[in-house]
């Protein structure tokens, strides 16, 4: 039983969503998937729905080191990566690591940071290392960025360029919890204190083992590959889109589909895995034509899901 690499992962999801983050199962699951697939998560929602709570809870439950950046327009790249400070006693510069040197990094309101700062972060996300003053530092493994942004705010923001959006594996909202649950939450008040009490539910080794299991044991058949290709190709030919899903997007879709299958206890990917992740993985990667700017990307993808038959035979 303890041999199954799935158990601790499921345990994290269950505990978090049952005890601490009621009504956020989907977001918790996606965050776990993002972590297991080695990608980064972008939470897109209005403030006060528990984006930060989610990230905090996740960091505690995973027993990972946690760093946090509150992005503002005067945030500098060195505020993220760290900088060298002259040590008078030892008469030399010593490097002070920035928040990026944590397993889990919460970049709150990432769209408020300057493009220069954004790109410093995004480089770290892609390369898993930072270069400061000619010296390259490896980032810890696992490394995941949970960025949040408020889609409503426009003033004083620097929207992420599409090329950088492409680096996020999954984008998701959190949404309001159901009525009964929200009432409970209101009654209980903030749970920030409780979250600090969360004991790590999974070790780093278990996490890495789960990752390995996903890579090695989950089978992606040719039919699913074709299905993913068709879904991706459909966005490239779509008349309302300027650019469709990139090859990186397709790889991401396949990888998250594997993770989804793994969490579901299967050793093979089924079309539903792909369908479930098509929206979270792909929606933010689409570039709409200027005249169709107001279109809902998710609706567009849903229509593509309906048009492309699921491979059954």
């Amino acid at each position: 039983m303890s041999n199954d690499p799935r158990i601790p992962v499921l345990n994290v999801i269950e505990t978090l969503s049952d005890q601490y983050l009621q009504g956020k199962v989907k977001a918790v699951k996606l965050a776990m998937m993002s972590l297991l697939s080695g990608g980064h998560l972008l939470l897109e929602d209005i403030p006060g729905l528990g984006k930060t709570t989610l990230a905090l809870a996740l960091a505690h439950a995973l027993g990972l080191s946690f760093g946090r950046i509150q992005c503002t327009s005067d945030l500098l790249p060195s505020d993220i990566t760290g900088l060298s400070i002259y040590d008078r006693e030892q008469s030399q510069f010593s490097f002070i690591e920035g928040p990026v040197f944590n397993n889990l990094l919460l970049a709150d309101e990432i769209n408020r940071a300057m493009p220069k700062t954004q790109s410093a972060l995004l480089e770290a996300m892609e390369e898993h290392r930072v270069t400061i003053e000619g010296k390259t530092y490896r980032l810890p493994d696992p490394f995941m960025v949970i960025a949040t942004q408020n889609p409503v705010e426009q003033v004083g923001t620097y929207p992420l360029p599409e090329s950088q959006l492409d680096r996020f594996l999954i984008t998701t909202g959190i949404g309001y919890p159901p009525e009964s649950m929200e009432k409970k939450i209101i009654q209980r008040g903030s749970i920030r204190e409780e979250i600090r009490e969360i004991k790590p539910l999974i070790s780093r080794e278990e996490l890495l083992r789960a990752r390995q299991a996903i890579r090695e044991e989950v089978q992606l058949s040719d039919k699913i590959t074709t299905y993913i290709y068709r879904l991706v190709a459909a966005t490239r030919e779509h008349p309302m889109l300027l650019a469709g899903i990139s090859t990186r997007g397709a790889i991401s879709l396949a990888e998250t589909a594997r993770t989804h299958a793994f969490l579901d206890g299967r050793d093979h990917v089924i079309p539903e895995d792909v369908k479930d992740l098509y929206l979270p993985v792909c929606a933010h990667r689409l570039i709409l034509r200027p005249e169709n700017e107001t279109l809902d990307r998710k609706e567009l993808l849903l229509s593509l899901l309906e048009e492309n038959p699921v491979p059954l035979v």
Partner: peptide, 11 residues
């Protein structure tokens, strides 16, 4: 679905 998928998507 489980049995069917189990065969078809295991190639």
């Amino acid at each position: 679905a489980k049995i069917y998928y189990g065969a078809v998507f295991r190639d």
